[in-house]
Design a protein around this nucleic acid. Sequence first.
DNA 1: AAAGAAGGTTAAACTAGTTTAATCTAAGTC
DNA 2: GACTTAGATTAAACTAGTTTAACCTTCTTT
Lengths: 194, 194
Amino acid sequence: MDIVPLIDYMQKFVELEPQEVEIIQKHTSLRNYLKGQFVVQQGDVCRHESFVVEGCLRTFYVDEKGQEHTVMFAIENWWTADLGSFLTQTPAHYNVQCLENTKVIQFSHTNLENLYLQVPKMERFFRIILQRAYVASERRLVRSYSLTAKERYLKFRQDYPLIEQRVPQYMIASYLGITKEFLSKIRNQLILEQ
Amino acid sequence: MDIVPLIDYMQKFVELEPQEVEIIQKHTSLRNYLKGQFVVQQGDVCRHESFVVEGCLRTFYVDEKGQEHTVMFAIENWWTADLGSFLTQTPAHYNVQCLENTKVIQFSHTNLENLYLQVPKMERFFRIILQRAYVASERRLVRSYSLTAKERYLKFRQDYPLIEQRVPQYMIASYLGITKEFLSKIRNQLILEQ
DNA sequence: AAAGAAGGTTAAACTAGTTTAATCTAAGTC
DNA sequence: GACTTAGATTAAACTAGTTTAACCTTCTTT
């Protein structure tokens, strides 16, 4: 059974009966992507919500001036999608690209809506997941206003040491809302300080 | 029945049976606050999630340097709380203060957990509400990085014309992540442009 | 009507972070 | 082993937004 990592993850939040696990399995699909491939492309409708089994992805947005803004990273046991696009099945604002070869478990929109009806516990599960996601997003917003770039970088390193190792610096810079040149300067300062 | 505004709002997302409405009523309480009063104070545990029936509130955070950062505003038909604090029943990072005399419908933490068990539709309801809140929060974050202060201000005016009328400018400035002086400058520019 | 509060404006000096552009490094690939 | 390509660094000139400080406006209170 290939959805074991997802079920293990879900069991942390809700208790699932064997028959529920079976229904969940019928409503998901597995997919492998190569490094560089896109799970979602800006302008297309986001067809799936993906649970990362293995690999690393980046969600980013290219603005009118052509600048890239990294919205989030996702590694093992994280969820990724352009949620706004997925929920309303309208064109995506964001791109989701694999930074490594990546294995995901996916829910299509109709399958997920169906699953909510057949396994009401899924409502509870996603309610809990979304609460956490919302709180995290709000905290990040507050930090973006109340901390300097250097403080945000230190916080990022502390919160996501595993991600820092796996992604290029210019993506971290755009996640922090600064240029790669300025991140480079900050890093240099930090080395000199010690 | 005093929870009519809440029920009307909920019916937009889920269909409620009369007996469910009754259970919901038993798990909520009504409360009136005067202008200036605090619904949540930084450092205290946030005991309630509040649905605004009438009035206007601001969620803000005072950082170590003593600076205020406005996290959100809430008016009629919005929800407010320090959700992170409410969910984990740990000290709040934020203050929620009434900017006008305000009437809310509140769920305590235990009542809400109870209600989830008695009326499973509540899970669905909050799942949907949280999806929207998360998407909105993510969009605001992207804007904070990709737009200039002036662009953010114009967007705010466009998105929340009702709020703009009701709250002082220095709070809008801190919501936009800029100083009141700079907002004043932007407003002056906008007048000159026309 | 005088006196505070609370909010808003203006302007000069300043700084955190950007822009531009050149150089460096390392890894793949022909 | 030379040649792209992708990423990282450095530094000088610049700018969006901050800081400080003084002043203005309006409403509330007495």
